Amino acid sequence: MFQNPTVPLAPMTPDAAISASAAPAPRVALSLDRVRYVRHTAHLDRGEISVPAHCATAGEKALPPRACRWETAGMTTQRLPFPVPDERAHNFVNSYADMHDLVEDLVVPTGVPEAAATVLRTARELLRQSYYCYEFSTVAVMHSLIAVGIVLRDRIPGAGKKPLQKLIQQGADAGTLTARQAEYLDYGRQIRNGMAHGKTTHAVMPSAMAVPMVTTSFAIVSELCAAPA
Protein backbone atom coordinates (compact mmCIF):
# COMPACT_ATOMS: atom_id res chain seq x y z
CA MET A 1 0.00 0.00 0.00
CA PHE A 2 1.42 3.38 -0.99
CA GLN A 3 2.23 5.75 1.79
CA ASN A 4 3.39 9.34 1.50
CA PRO A 5 6.96 9.09 2.87
CA THR A 6 6.68 12.51 4.47
CA VAL A 7 3.62 11.54 6.52
CA PRO A 8 4.22 8.26 8.40
CA LEU A 9 1.06 6.38 9.32
CA ALA A 10 0.84 5.41 12.97
CA PRO A 11 -0.80 2.12 13.97
CA MET A 12 -4.49 2.54 14.77
CA THR A 13 -6.43 0.48 17.27
CA PRO A 14 -9.80 -0.97 16.19
CA ASP A 15 -11.66 1.48 18.46
CA ALA A 16 -9.72 4.38 17.02
CA ALA A 17 -10.33 3.12 13.49
CA ILE A 18 -14.07 2.96 14.07
CA SER A 19 -14.02 6.45 15.52
CA ALA A 20 -12.01 7.75 12.59
CA SER A 21 -14.27 6.10 10.06
CA ALA A 22 -17.29 7.74 11.66
CA ALA A 23 -15.76 11.21 11.41
CA PRO A 24 -16.49 13.14 8.19
CA ALA A 25 -13.55 13.02 5.78
CA PRO A 26 -12.13 16.34 4.56
CA ARG A 27 -13.24 17.23 1.07
CA VAL A 28 -10.60 16.84 -1.60
CA ALA A 29 -10.72 18.98 -4.72
CA LEU A 30 -9.38 16.66 -7.39
CA SER A 31 -8.33 17.86 -10.81
CA LEU A 32 -5.68 16.72 -13.24
CA ASP A 33 -3.87 20.04 -13.12
CA ARG A 34 -3.27 19.47 -9.39
CA VAL A 35 -1.45 16.21 -9.94
CA ARG A 36 2.25 16.32 -10.57
CA TYR A 37 4.50 13.54 -11.75
CA VAL A 38 7.45 13.23 -9.37
CA ARG A 39 10.11 10.62 -8.81
CA HIS A 40 11.49 8.85 -5.80
CA THR A 41 15.03 9.30 -4.62
CA ALA A 42 16.93 6.50 -2.99
CA HIS A 43 16.33 8.25 0.36
CA LEU A 44 12.58 7.96 0.78
CA ASP A 45 13.08 6.72 4.28
CA ARG A 46 14.20 10.28 5.05
CA GLY A 47 11.27 11.77 3.17
CA GLU A 48 13.33 13.21 0.33
CA ILE A 49 11.71 13.47 -3.10
CA SER A 50 13.23 14.36 -6.45
CA VAL A 51 11.31 15.89 -9.33
CA PRO A 52 11.97 16.35 -13.05
CA ALA A 53 14.25 19.28 -13.75
CA HIS A 54 11.62 21.17 -15.76
CA CYS A 55 9.18 21.31 -12.81
CA ALA A 56 11.60 21.41 -9.89
CA THR A 57 11.29 24.26 -7.43
CA ALA A 58 13.82 25.64 -5.01
CA GLY A 59 15.03 23.02 -2.56
CA GLU A 60 13.98 19.99 -4.62
CA LYS A 61 16.60 17.50 -5.71
CA ALA A 62 17.60 16.36 -9.16
CA LEU A 63 15.75 13.51 -10.82
CA PRO A 64 17.11 9.95 -10.52
CA PRO A 65 16.19 7.74 -13.50
CA ARG A 66 13.49 5.06 -13.57
CA ALA A 67 12.04 5.55 -10.10
CA CYS A 68 8.71 7.22 -10.24
CA ARG A 69 5.33 7.70 -8.65
CA TRP A 70 2.42 10.11 -8.72
CA GLU A 71 2.13 12.77 -6.08
CA THR A 72 -0.54 15.38 -5.56
CA ALA A 73 0.64 18.97 -5.58
CA GLY A 74 -0.99 21.25 -3.05
CA MET A 75 -3.97 18.96 -2.46
CA THR A 76 -5.86 18.35 0.76
CA THR A 77 -5.38 14.73 1.78
CA GLN A 78 -7.22 12.46 4.17
CA ARG A 79 -6.02 9.76 6.48
CA LEU A 80 -8.08 6.62 6.01
CA PRO A 81 -8.43 4.17 8.91
CA PHE A 82 -7.16 0.64 8.82
CA PRO A 83 -9.86 -1.84 7.78
CA VAL A 84 -12.13 -3.10 10.51
CA PRO A 85 -14.67 -5.94 10.17
CA ASP A 86 -18.04 -4.94 8.79
CA GLU A 87 -20.58 -5.90 11.43
CA ARG A 88 -22.91 -7.26 8.72
CA ALA A 89 -20.33 -9.94 7.84
CA HIS A 90 -20.80 -11.44 11.29
CA ASN A 91 -24.27 -12.55 10.26
CA PHE A 92 -22.53 -15.27 8.24
CA VAL A 93 -19.02 -15.74 9.65
CA ASN A 94 -17.29 -15.25 12.97
CA SER A 95 -13.85 -14.17 11.76
CA TYR A 96 -11.84 -13.30 8.67
CA ALA A 97 -10.40 -16.82 8.68
CA ASP A 98 -13.91 -18.12 8.05
CA MET A 99 -13.98 -16.21 4.76
CA HIS A 100 -11.32 -18.54 3.43
CA ASP A 101 -13.59 -21.48 4.15
CA LEU A 102 -16.29 -19.84 2.03
CA VAL A 103 -14.06 -19.55 -1.04
CA GLU A 104 -11.73 -22.53 -0.68
CA ASP A 105 -13.60 -24.44 -3.42
CA LEU A 106 -13.23 -21.57 -5.89
CA VAL A 107 -10.21 -22.95 -7.71
CA VAL A 108 -9.42 -21.53 -11.14
CA PRO A 109 -9.53 -24.54 -13.48
CA THR A 110 -6.62 -25.38 -15.72
CA GLY A 111 -6.91 -24.41 -19.35
CA VAL A 112 -8.72 -21.16 -18.65
CA PRO A 113 -7.37 -18.17 -20.63
CA GLU A 114 -5.18 -16.05 -18.40
CA ALA A 115 -7.39 -12.98 -18.90
CA ALA A 116 -10.38 -14.87 -17.49
CA ALA A 117 -8.32 -16.59 -14.80
CA THR A 118 -7.09 -13.24 -13.49
CA VAL A 119 -10.65 -11.93 -13.28
CA LEU A 120 -11.82 -15.05 -11.43
CA ARG A 121 -9.01 -14.76 -8.90
CA THR A 122 -9.92 -11.12 -8.35
CA ALA A 123 -13.58 -12.04 -7.81
CA ARG A 124 -12.55 -14.66 -5.26
CA GLU A 125 -10.41 -12.15 -3.39
CA LEU A 126 -13.21 -9.59 -3.41
CA LEU A 127 -15.42 -12.16 -1.67
CA ARG A 128 -12.82 -12.66 1.05
CA GLN A 129 -12.34 -8.94 1.56
CA SER A 130 -16.09 -8.39 1.87
CA TYR A 131 -15.49 -9.24 5.52
CA TYR A 132 -14.16 -5.67 5.77
CA CYS A 133 -16.15 -4.01 2.96
CA TYR A 134 -19.50 -5.75 2.74
CA GLU A 135 -20.31 -4.30 -0.68
CA PHE A 136 -17.34 -6.16 -2.20
CA SER A 137 -19.51 -9.29 -2.36
CA THR A 138 -21.70 -7.62 -4.99
CA VAL A 139 -18.64 -6.43 -6.91
CA ALA A 140 -17.32 -10.01 -6.84
CA VAL A 141 -20.46 -11.29 -8.56
CA MET A 142 -20.29 -8.62 -11.24
CA HIS A 143 -16.58 -9.26 -11.75
CA SER A 144 -17.05 -13.00 -12.12
CA LEU A 145 -19.48 -12.35 -14.99
CA ILE A 146 -16.66 -10.59 -16.86
CA ALA A 147 -14.69 -13.84 -16.82
CA VAL A 148 -17.64 -15.74 -18.27
CA GLY A 149 -17.97 -13.11 -20.99
CA ILE A 150 -14.28 -13.42 -21.90
CA VAL A 151 -14.54 -17.17 -22.35
CA LEU A 152 -17.89 -16.93 -24.11
CA ARG A 153 -16.47 -14.59 -26.73
CA ASP A 154 -13.71 -17.11 -27.39
CA ARG A 155 -16.25 -19.88 -27.90
CA ILE A 156 -18.81 -18.11 -30.08
CA PRO A 157 -17.86 -17.48 -33.73
CA GLY A 158 -18.13 -13.85 -34.77
CA ALA A 159 -18.68 -12.65 -31.21
CA GLY A 160 -16.81 -9.44 -31.85
CA LYS A 161 -18.19 -6.65 -29.71
CA LYS A 162 -21.71 -8.00 -29.42
CA PRO A 163 -23.41 -7.17 -26.11
CA LEU A 164 -23.61 -9.93 -23.53
CA GLN A 165 -27.35 -10.37 -24.07
CA LYS A 166 -26.82 -11.33 -27.72
CA LEU A 167 -23.88 -13.56 -26.83
CA ILE A 168 -26.02 -15.43 -24.31
CA GLN A 169 -28.83 -15.89 -26.84
CA GLN A 170 -26.43 -16.96 -29.58
CA GLY A 171 -24.64 -19.34 -27.23
CA ALA A 172 -27.93 -20.91 -26.15
CA ASP A 173 -29.15 -21.27 -29.74
CA ALA A 174 -25.88 -22.90 -30.82
CA GLY A 175 -25.78 -25.26 -27.85
CA THR A 176 -22.61 -23.64 -26.48
CA LEU A 177 -24.59 -22.76 -23.36
CA THR A 178 -27.06 -25.00 -21.60
CA ALA A 179 -30.46 -23.61 -20.64
CA ARG A 180 -29.29 -23.44 -17.01
CA GLN A 181 -26.14 -21.54 -17.90
CA ALA A 182 -28.01 -19.11 -20.13
CA GLU A 183 -30.61 -18.46 -17.43
CA TYR A 184 -27.94 -17.68 -14.84
CA LEU A 185 -25.98 -15.42 -17.16
CA ASP A 186 -29.06 -13.47 -18.18
CA TYR A 187 -30.01 -12.99 -14.53
CA GLY A 188 -26.51 -11.74 -13.73
CA ARG A 189 -26.56 -9.49 -16.79
CA GLN A 190 -29.78 -7.83 -15.63
CA ILE A 191 -28.32 -7.15 -12.18
CA ARG A 192 -25.15 -5.75 -13.71
CA ASN A 193 -27.06 -3.51 -16.11
CA GLY A 194 -29.31 -2.25 -13.36
CA MET A 195 -26.30 -1.15 -11.34
CA ALA A 196 -24.40 0.27 -14.32
CA HIS A 197 -27.35 2.41 -15.43
CA GLY A 198 -28.37 3.55 -11.98
CA LYS A 199 -31.62 1.60 -11.89
CA THR A 200 -30.37 -0.48 -8.97
CA THR A 201 -28.55 1.51 -6.32
CA HIS A 202 -26.89 0.50 -3.07
CA ALA A 203 -27.33 -3.14 -4.02
CA VAL A 204 -25.67 -5.42 -1.52
CA MET A 205 -25.53 -9.17 -1.85
CA PRO A 206 -24.76 -10.98 1.39
CA SER A 207 -22.02 -13.56 1.12
CA ALA A 208 -24.60 -16.33 1.44
CA MET A 209 -26.03 -15.15 -1.88
CA ALA A 210 -22.84 -13.95 -3.58
CA VAL A 211 -20.72 -17.07 -3.02
CA PRO A 212 -23.11 -19.41 -4.91
CA MET A 213 -23.31 -16.94 -7.79
CA VAL A 214 -19.54 -16.58 -8.08
CA THR A 215 -19.25 -20.36 -7.76
CA THR A 216 -21.63 -20.68 -10.71
CA SER A 217 -19.44 -18.34 -12.76
CA PHE A 218 -16.42 -20.49 -11.93
CA ALA A 219 -18.37 -23.59 -12.96
CA ILE A 220 -19.56 -22.13 -16.27
CA VAL A 221 -16.04 -21.01 -17.17
CA SER A 222 -14.76 -24.49 -16.35
CA GLU A 223 -17.50 -26.17 -18.40
CA LEU A 224 -17.00 -23.87 -21.40
CA CYS A 225 -13.25 -24.45 -21.41
CA ALA A 226 -13.63 -28.21 -21.02
CA ALA A 227 -16.17 -28.57 -23.85
CA PRO A 228 -14.85 -29.28 -27.37
CA ALA A 229 -14.42 -26.12 -29.41
Rank of each mutant, 00 (worst) to 15 (best):
F2Q: 11
F2D: 09
N4M: 02
P5W: 01
T6L: 05
V7D: 14
P8Y: 01
A10S: 09
M12N: 01
A16S: 08
S19Y: 06
A23E: 14
A25R: 15
A25E: 13
V28A: 05
V28Q: 13
A29Q: 11
L30G: 04
L32W: 12
Y37Q: 09
V38E: 12
R39V: 15
T41S: 12
T41A: 07
T41E: 02
A42T: 10
H43P: 00
L44T: 10
L44I: 10
R46D: 07
E48P: 01
I49Y: 03
I49W: 03
P52W: 10
H54T: 10
C55D: 11
G59L: 13
E60H: 09
L63H: 11
L63W: 10
W70Y: 14
T72I: 08
T72F: 12
M75P: 04
M75G: 08
T77N: 06
Q78S: 12
Q78R: 15
R79T: 13
R79V: 12
L80E: 06
F82D: 10
P83A: 01
P83W: 01
A89H: 02
H90L: 11
N91L: 13
F92P: 05
F92T: 14
V93P: 04
S95W: 07
S95I: 06
Y96K: 06
A97S: 13
D98F: 07
M99D: 07
H100P: 01
H100S: 13
H100Q: 11
V103L: 06
E104P: 00
V107P: 04
V108D: 00
G111H: 02
V112I: 15
P113L: 06
E114W: 08
A115P: 04
A116Q: 03
A117Y: 08
A117C: 07
T118N: 14
A123S: 15
A123K: 09
L126Q: 07
R128T: 09
R128M: 14
Y134I: 07
E135Y: 00
T138C: 02
T138A: 04
T138H: 00
T138S: 04
S144A: 15
I146S: 15
I150C: 06
R153T: 00
R153G: 02
D154C: 08
R155P: 02
R155M: 04
A159F: 00
K162T: 09
K166V: 10
G171K: 00
D173N: 12
A174N: 10
A174T: 13
A182C: 02
D186W: 00
G188R: 00
R192S: 06
G194D: 04
A196G: 01
A196D: 05
A196H: 06
A196F: 01
H197K: 08
G198Q: 05
K199E: 15
T200M: 11
P206C: 09
P206Q: 07
P206D: 11
A208V: 15
A210C: 07
A210Q: 05
T215N: 05
I220E: 02
S222F: 03
C225N: 03
A229V: 12
